[in-house]
Design a protein around this nucleic acid. Structure first.
Lengths: 153, 153
DNA sequence: CTGCCTGCAAACTCTTTGCACGAAT
DNA sequence: ATTCGTGCAAAGAGTTTGCAGGCAG
């Protein structure tokens, strides 16, 4: 999905829900969609302020749920306290994360069988699955051998 | 694993690591191992205080990592802010969680293929897997149909 | 014009930590 | 007698919220 198309989708979502299209919301949207890697709320605040310096932390935190509910951003919680976000590109609905504990890098991997697993297991419990998440924590081979990692930020 | 056996394992772990066997640590251990459902740190504090009212919140938080490192408790993070804990019974190492968002109940399900998935996917990225977690969020069929759920706490 | 949206700062939740006292070894 | 462990309370991180003023519709 191109960024222009995604921006249209965002505006439509806002209008349709009776929410206002404000400069701050658009700045936060643009900041998010110029990213290719995962980012935190705090980082998004920085990026958005580079576009519109009136953007506040509160508005970032209030806009993030809107963007995840409208399926524009994926929220990734790897249990480190802070949440990560990533623009949803194309039709990647069923993904797993591989988190390198040396590089602090998050890889997104397609995992279509997850949905099947969720359905199978849930129905046995009298439940209807809503979502599933699969995360692998791993060590970096390069880091273990050389003490540093090219992927490290 | 019986509770007496698990308690021995805990005492052995403490001694072996040069840690002291205190009344507070034993009270926290007993409080945890009398549970069959998931509990939070705060709940564990209550349970432990019923055994030894000198137990403090700080000691609970300092003892929990010891019990997870010694493979007596499993830590479960379902992304709700607080972490849950469960005594590890028997040889259940590869488990997934099914979380009912209506009942707030956590089911533990054996998922041996998770380890295989972690290895496969990690090696392609030049990584060595350390751990993996799989969680399914689901709605309760009974709750959807009747507006209440027998499992609800 | 109306009322949703905003920035600011305080509040909140869960967890961690510094300190001086107390107890296990 | 040493130290490690403890309780207390304050600090910390990330996120949420109440309020008065501002801007979209």
């Amino acid at each position: 999905m191109s960024i222009a198309l995604a921006r249209d989708k965002f505006r439509q979502y806002l209008t349709q829900k009776g929410l206002r299209v404000t400069n701050q919301r658009l700045a936060i949207f643009d900041a998010a969609f110029n990213r290719t890697e995962h980012f935190t709320a705090e980082q998004l605040l920085d990026y958005a302020r580079a576009i519109d310096d009136s953007v506040s932390r509160a508005t970032v935190y209030r806009t993030l749920p809107i963007m995840t509910e409208s399926a524009l951003l994926r929220e990734v919680d790897i249990g480190t306290g802070e949440k990560f976000y990533l623009p949803i590109s194309g039709n990647s609905t069923q993904v797993a994360q591989v988190v390198c504990v040396d590089c602090d890098k998050i890889f997104e991997i397609s995992a279509p069988f997850m949905e099947w697993y969720g359905s199978t297991v849930s129905s046995k419990l009298g439940l209807t699955p809503e979502s599933q998440r699969l995360q692998v924590s791993a060590h970096c081979d390069v880091f273990r051998n050389t003490g540093s990692c090219p992927r490290r930020s």
